[in-house]
Every structure is written in structure tokens, then in C-alpha cells.
């Protein structure tokens, strides 16, 4: 396997003439054992998985992902469980892109060096820390690079051209465009504006530009996939955990939802 698996994923999708589908779940939600199964099911229909690291203070997340963090922590999820879940995903899915996503303090508390070692050993390809913007990357960029971990950076509707250039210089793997000024799980904005900004970012970088925040339906996935290099679905998948009873039922709902989105991408290609 190539060291930079994420770029392989985007190359493969491009060859297939489609955008990548990226799914998010919080590790340990609702508990570690169930979470293993749910992520395994999601993995069979997406190209990249964002494994959420639960945090006590998820400042950029809406109620759905906040509650996911609370459930995971209440059921005793530790960072070691996040790595174990990641390792299991990796061994069952050699081609899957895996990104660890969360807040700075989890990695900072462990020490970035130890965190990077463990993340890499577990089979993660990249790290997305919401509250470490490029300006503060001095505390982790070199360490992640030394371990062959991509550092995924975010852009938003408020990002200026200067900031787009900064993300292009400092980020690796892909750029995650947050399609709305708001928190995760909010209602998606007008598609025209999202398309315009995404294309503008694409014109300024060679890196794949993936679009997320508020994407909930196969139709939205298809609409975004028409111009983005990848589509991220988070809160919609997480919300399956509370709208179905029992791990099997949740897994089935996740599987069929992810499948429908995958088909929406493929058919729109």
C-alpha cells in the first residue's frame, strides 16, 4: 500500500469518474462494542471513514454529534478504544481511507509524538483536528508528516483567498470545505453558493476538495458530488444511532443509507 493512501483513494475515485464518499461516526458511540460493528458496516459503502474521537467539549459540533460524544464518554470510551477500532477497520479494509477527527486537546494531552505513533500503528492515514488551524500547526505538522500522516485542514465560507492559499500550503491529503457558517448537522445552504466557493477553492489548489456539513440526503450527496471531489456525511449517519433500536437495526440503517448515497454518487457520475 502506498504511504499516502488518501491520495490513492481520490485517484481511484477519479478513475471511476466519481466523487469520494466520506462517512463520519464517533468512535465508542453508543458503546465500544457496538461502535466496532457500526463502523465496520459503514466501511463497506464509503471510500473514507472519519473516526470521531469523543471529547468533553465539542465546540464546533451541533446537538447530534455533541450527544454522540457524550454517549461515547458515558459508556467509558478511551482513546485506546479509538485506536483499537481504527486498527480493526484497517485490517478488514486495506484500501479504506481512515482519518482520525476531533479536537486538539485529545492529541495534545497524549503528546503529538505518541499520538502520531499510535495513530499510524493503528492504520490511520490522516488527522483532522478542528481547532488547530494552519497558523497553529507548528505544534504538530512536522510530527504528523514524519509519521506519514496527512494533516487535513478545513476551509469555510469565511475563508479568504489568503487562507485558501494557507490551507493549500499546509494541508495534505484533501481539503475539507465546511459548506456553511455554522456547526455540524445544521441545514445545508443554497447549492449554487456552495458550488461557486468549491470551484473557487479547486481553482487555487491541486488537492481534492471535499464538501461537508449539512449533507443528509442521497439527492444532496449527488448534487455535491457533481462538483466536489468528495462528499462528507456526518450527523445524518450519527443520527441513525438514536433513531433505531439495537446495534443490528442501526447497522442495517447505516448500511442502506450509505449504499443509497454511494449509488447516488455513482449514478450521477
Amino acid at each position: 500500500m502506498s504511504q499516502m493512501r488518501l491520495s490513492e483513494v481520490f485517484k481511484r475515485c477519479k478513475t471511476e469518474g466519481r466523487a469520494a464518499l466520506i462517512g463520519y461516526l464517533t468512535a465508542g458511540d453508543p458503546d465500544v462494542a457496538s461502535s466496532h460493528k457500526l463502523l465496520a458496516r459503514l466501511a463497506s459503502h464509503v471510500d473514507i471513514i472519519e473516526v470521531g474521537m469523543p471529547f468533553s467539549d465539542p465546540m464546533a459540533d451541533g446537538p447530534v454529534i455533541q450527544a454522540a460524544s457524550e454517549r461515547a464518554l458515558a459508556s467509558g470510551t478511551k482513546i485506546a478504544d479509538v485506536f483499537a477500532i481504527t486498527a480493526e477497520l484497517r485490517s478488514a479494509n486495506p484500501e479504506l481511507g481512515i482519518v482520525l477527527m476531533g479536537y486538539a486537546n485529545i492529541a495534545y494531552a497524549m503528546g503529538f509524538e505518541t499520538f502520531a505513533q499510535k495513530a499510524k500503528a493503528a492504520g490511520a492515514d490522516g488527522v483532522l483536528l478542528v481547532d488547530i488551524p494552519p497558523e497553529e500547526g507548528g505544534i504538530c505538522d512536522a510530527i504528523f508528516a514524519a509519521h506519514g500522516l496527512d494533516r487535513i485542514l478545513l476551509l469555510s465560507p469565511t475563508s479568504t483567498d489568503e487562507r485558501i492559499r494557507l490551507a493549500d500550503q499546509k494541508g495534505t491529503g484533501f481539503i475539507y470545505y465546511v459548506s456553511l457558517t455554522g456547526i455540524t448537522g445544521a441545514e445545508m445552504g443554497a447549492m449554487d453558493g456552495i458550488r461557486e466557493k468549491t470551484r473557487h477553492i479547486q481553482s487555487m489548489t491541486d488537492k481534492p476538495v471535499c464538501v461537508g456539513f449539512g449533507v443528509k440526503t442521497p439527492q444532496q450527496v449527488a448534487d455535491v458530488a457533481a462538483f466536489a471531489d468528495g462528499v462528507v456525511v456526518g450527523s445524518h449517519f450519527v443520527s441513525q444511532i438514536t433513531s433505531h433500536d439495537g446495534t443490528d437495526a442501526i447497522a442495517d440503517a447505516l448500511g442502506s443509507s450509505a449504499l443509497a448515497m454511494h449509488q447516488a454518487i455513482a449514478s450521477g457520475a
Binding site: 465546540m59 464546533a60 486538539a104 478542528v130 481547532d131 488547530i132 488551524p133 497558523e135 497553529e136 485542514l153 478545513l154 476551509l155 469555510s156 465560507p157 469565511t158 475563508s159 479568504t160 487562507r163 490551507a167 465546511v178 457558517t181 455554522g182
Partner: peptide, 19 residues
Amino acid sequence: GGHFGRFGGRFAAETLMQP
């Protein structure tokens, strides 16, 4: 960058960086 020695800084989500 708003650092007092090794402390401080601007560890904010991208959306808030420009504001």
C-alpha cells in the same frame, strides 16, 4: 499570533479565524 510565551494563540475552528 497572540502567544504569551508558549501559551495563548488562536486555536479556533476555521470559520472563526477570519472573524
